[in-house]
């Protein structure tokens, strides 16, 4: 958090059909549906999140990700990082407070991989859903589906991942926690970045096309909960991608599936931690099968190639 960037704040995802999307994120992932705004966008949060929302769905002609936002410490940090981003050469736009309900001013900027990110300093805090912060009970009883606890990270696909890693590291203080390298080609194939103790707050995989969305990920408390998510995927005939399994990269326990518009979701538990003095963990591209699917150790074309 050396540059005052604290954590992921929200992601805005495009969906082809709002009604089925709301049902998926609310009833299957088990996010709390907080409200619908005047533009018809729908807002959600994981029950442990203190913010008013962390996922926004917007109906559009193409699925994918509009932007991912990061929360900074305060207004002064927001102003300072905005100037840093301009000096770095980013295209920077200021989105006025209230454009997303309950969120303060946002600084939106582009990246070498073609993804749009945002910084913000203020968002309404409605507290952990169903438990509050005064003598809180362990969990609320009225949760649905997979009971996703929080929006955790995004994995994004794009061409110049070294450029985006440099931007996020040098301007926003991200730390490279893990990477995949193809030594033969002297090429970084994947990068996992963090501003916290997590193994990743955002990750990138090298891909020919800019601005692609691989998945948004949500945290569960245990491997048992990942298996329970797998049961729900079968019970409701949700399009499974892969899992339940464990990743070599980050060592998280995971399952992947698709929302009704073809955007990939992950729910996972566990995973490694990162302190600022930790060396970068590197997986060799020759071990990519094991790096991605620790048990099968086989690459899966759909997992690698299908994006929105």
């Amino acid at each position: 958090m050396q540059k005052g960037v604290m954590r992921p704040g929200h992601v805005q995802i495009r969906v082809l059909d709002m009604e089925t999307a709301v049902a998926h994120y609310r009833d299957r992932l088990g996010l709390i549906h907080t409200h619908t705004d005047s533009q018809g966008r729908n807002y959600f949060k994981g029950w442990t999140e203190i913010d008013a929302f962390s996922v926004v769905l917007r109906e559009a002609d193409e699925p994918g990700m509009d932007f991912m936002a990061l929360k900074v410490l305060d207004a002064a940090t927001l102003a300072a990082r905005k100037q840093d981003l301009i000096d770095y050469g980013c295209q920077v736009e200021t989105i006025p407070a209230g454009e997303l309900d309950g969120c303060g001013e946002r600084v939106r900027f582009d990246s070498p991989t073609g993804h749009w990110f945002e910084l913000f300093a203020e968002k309404e805090q409605t507290g952990k859903w169903g438990v509050g912060d005064r003598n809180p009970d362990a969990w609320p009883e009225d949760l649905k589906g997979m009971k996703a606890t929080r929006f955790d990270h995004c994995l994004l696909y794009g061409d110049d991942i070294d450029g985006t890693v440099d931007l996020l590291s040098s301007v926003l203080g991200f730390q490279l926690a893990e990477q995949v390298r193809d030594e033969e080609a002297d090429l970084r194939v994947a990068a996992f970045l963090t501003v916290s103790m997590k193994a990743h707050d955002v990750a990138f995989v090298r891909h020919e096309e800019k601005g692609k969305f691989h998945h948004a990920s949500f945290y569960l408390s245990s491997w048992e909960d990942v298996l329970r998510a797998a049961d729900l995927i079968s019970m409701h005939d949700i399009a499974l991608d892969i899992g339940p399994t464990r990743h070599g990269l980050t060592h998280g326990q995971t399952i992947y599936f698709f929302d009704p518009s073809g955007n990939r979701n992950e729910v996972f538990s566990g995973g490694d931690y990162t302190y600022p003095d930790h060396p970068v963990v590197t997986w060799d591209a020759s071990q990519l099968g094991k790096a991605i699917f620790y048990h099968d150790r086989q690459l899966n074309e759909r997992f690698l190639g299908v994006v929105t």
Binding site: L16, P63, A239, F258, S261, G262, R264, V306
Partner: peptide
């Protein structure tokens, strides 16, 4: 993705009647 989003199952219908869901 099986949701009309990723485009990998692109086909051409040469003959016949059908309806479609929304596609990217």
């Amino acid at each position: 993705c099986r949701g009309g989003g990723c485009g990998v199952c692109r086909i051409h219908v040469r003959a016949g009647e059908y309806r479609t869901g929304r596609m990217s």
